[in-house]
Design a protein around this nucleic acid. Structure first.
Length: 533
DNA sequence: CAGCGCTACCACACCCC
DNA sequence: GGTGTGGTAGCG
């Protein structure tokens, strides 16, 4: 028996091998065509247990993602700016490859051709990262390097405070893309077995700690001198309007009303701020290119599917490649096969998280209408783990046939939606699908403009129906009429039916409550994005 | 044939004083 | 003038 298994394994490996050889010759052909007279890149030598060798380009991001999803889980989407005839700016293209294959070809490109970006996928776990920048012209007295150190210390203080994650400058890969005109750095935190749930959560954390910093700085400025012009727009001013009742009001001249929770938070803040001198805190304020005061940490890099420039890449037509900063202290663990540059490249990838059963997933929900349900105001620091009978994920659910059927209902002539996330309640045999790219709502009989819909598959009754995240539909708990799920997609089609009676005792309210819980969770996520408006 | 996901800003409608 | 909405230029 063992031998048989060995034989099967071996023969499938050989099959794989043959396929890969075929792919390589195709890739070489394509590359030869593409490069014309240019040098032919060295081929990527696959190993039997090696990564996917594919390398495929697309005009559209969605096509790249669906190719990557379809083919293999070790494929990732990158983007780059390629020269296009008579255009100042490069044509944006998307490219799918595994990390090793990407690096193998990327490293061989001419310096000027490295204009590549990592796509930080929506919903994927990721590292904590920062984009720090200011125009030198308007900030001649600023010492960017010292500011970066202070900022790093500020972030690590909050990481300890909120998540009890201890880290320091030695854990931060520090990349530099500065020019004479502009100070520009990327910080990428290298935390062992720790990642943020996705870059939206990371962004919420950043938004929170920067808000605290702005409040402190505004307070300092007032104490320092009331002589300074009051008309100066306060750097606090961009806080969101939707959470006025929850957060400190924008008006920094008034003490906010304090509940006990708020008091706690302010105490946390005080302890953190005590670790810094006034000069240090104020040093993180710069003037932007319009000469307005702002923090030197860019808050705009935490959006869905964000493009983040790669190690050694430059902006199209510019001469500012991202290199290791002179004062970087992060050293990757030694490796016998990979070069130092390869190790840095791997560590510089925001979404390159090594999977581990002990991976700690950090979450930070933005302040919104549901913030009260968290014990510590809005802060939730927890490790992954859900109730036993709830399973969720981003790729295939335990019922791929249902997934496929649901997906098939999301197509119109002009567009095709997809499942972004599913949550399965084993007890209720209910799957909640979170849909993107298709927003048709039965209640209003057209698509919603900005709110996504969800589809719920009730496996016990063999039907599915639609609900949505729109506040109006939600307020009436709108639920579309049931529609049948085809028998061949249902699990009972594969097993013997007639064990339905078993679960007769399950309370429908439980299922309903569970589903509502999921809707809430999803809404939190949606509100995180909305709140920033 | 060919980027994406925002936000700040504007114009406009409607309402209320 | 205050407030909500819908469209869009332009930024990262």
């Amino acid at each position: 028996m063992d031998k048989l298994i060995q034989w099967i394994t071996l023969s499938s490996l050989l099959n794989n091998w043959a396929l890969k050889i075929y792919h390589i010759s195709k890739i070489l052909d394509e590359n030869a065509k593409k490069l014309k007279s240019d040098k032919i890149p060295k081929e990527f030598r696959p190993r039997i247990d090696g990564p996917s060798v594919g390398w495929k380009t697309f005009f559209r991001q969605q096509e790249a993602f669906s190719y990557a999803r379809r083919k293999s889980s070790d494929l990732h989407v990158f983007s780059y700016e390629s020269e296009s005839l008579g255009s100042e700016t490069g044509q944006r293209m998307f490219l799918v490859a595994s990390y090793p294959v990407f690096w193998h070809y990327y490293r061989q490109l001419d310096e000027q051709k490295k204009t590549h970006y990592e796509l930080i996928p929506e919903g994927s776990v990721c590292k904590l990262y920062f984009d720090l920048e200011f125009p030198i012209e308007n900030n001649s007295n600023c010492d960017g390097r010292a500011m970066t150190d202070i900022f790093t210390k500020y972030v690590t203080s909050w990481m300890d405070e909120i998540f009890k994650v201890k880290c320091s400058k030695e854990h931060v890969l520090n990349l530099d893309a500065s020019t004479e005109k502009k100070f520009s750095r990327h910080l990428i935190f290298q935390l062992k077995r720790t990642a943020f749930q996705d870059n939206i959560h990371a962004g919420n954390f950043v938004q929170f700690i920067l808000q605290k910093l702005k409040e402190e700085i505004n307070k300092l400025k007032q104490n320092l001198s009331d002589v300074l012009d009051f008309d100066e727009p306060s750097i606090i001013s961009q806080s969101d309007k939707s959470s006025d009742e929850q957060t400190v009001p924008c008006d920094n001249q008034l003490d906010p009303p304090r509940h006990s929770q708020e008091q706690d938070k302010n105490d946390d803040k005080a302890e953190i701020m005590d670790g810094f001198t006034e000069e240090e805190l104020l040093s993180m304020v710069v003037r932007n290119k319009h000469n307005e005061e702002t923090l030197f940490c860019d808050q705009g890099v935490y959006t869905k599917n964000r493009n983040f420039r790669l190690f050694q890449s430059r902006k199209f037509g510019k001469n500012n490649p991202l290199v290791i900063s002179e004062d970087n202290l992060y050293i990757p663990p030694k490796d016998d096969v990979m070069s130092y540059e390869h190790l840095i490249f791997n560590d510089s990838l925001i979404a390159n998280i090594e999977y581990s059963p002990a991976l700690r997933i950090l979450q930070f929900d933005s302040e919104c209408q549901f913030s009260n349900k968290f014990s510590n105001g809005n802060v939730r620091a927890k490790t992954s783990g859900k109730a036993e009978d709830v399973v969720e994920g981003f790729t295939k659910s335990p019922y791929p046939e249902i997934d496929d059927f649901i997906s098939s209902t999301l197509k119109t002539v002009s567009k095709a939606g997809r499942i972004r996330h599913w949550t399965y309640f084993s007890q209720g045999e209910l799957i909640v699908y979170d849909i993107v790219g298709y927003r048709y709502c039965h209640n209003i009989e057209r698509e919603h403009k900005s709110n996504n819909i969800m589809l719920l598959a009730d496996l016990k009754r063999g039907v599915y129906y639609q609900k949505c995240h729109d506040p109006d539909c939600k307020s009436i708990s709108y639920k579309s009429p049931d529609k049948d799920i085809p028998k061949e997609a249902l699990p009972s089609f594969y097993f013997d039916d007639s064990f339905d009676e078993f679960d007769e005792g399950v309370d429908d309210m439980d299922i309903l409550n569970a589903a509502l819980e999921v809707e809430k969770t999803i809404d939190d996520k949606i509100n995180e994005n909305k709140d920033q408006t």
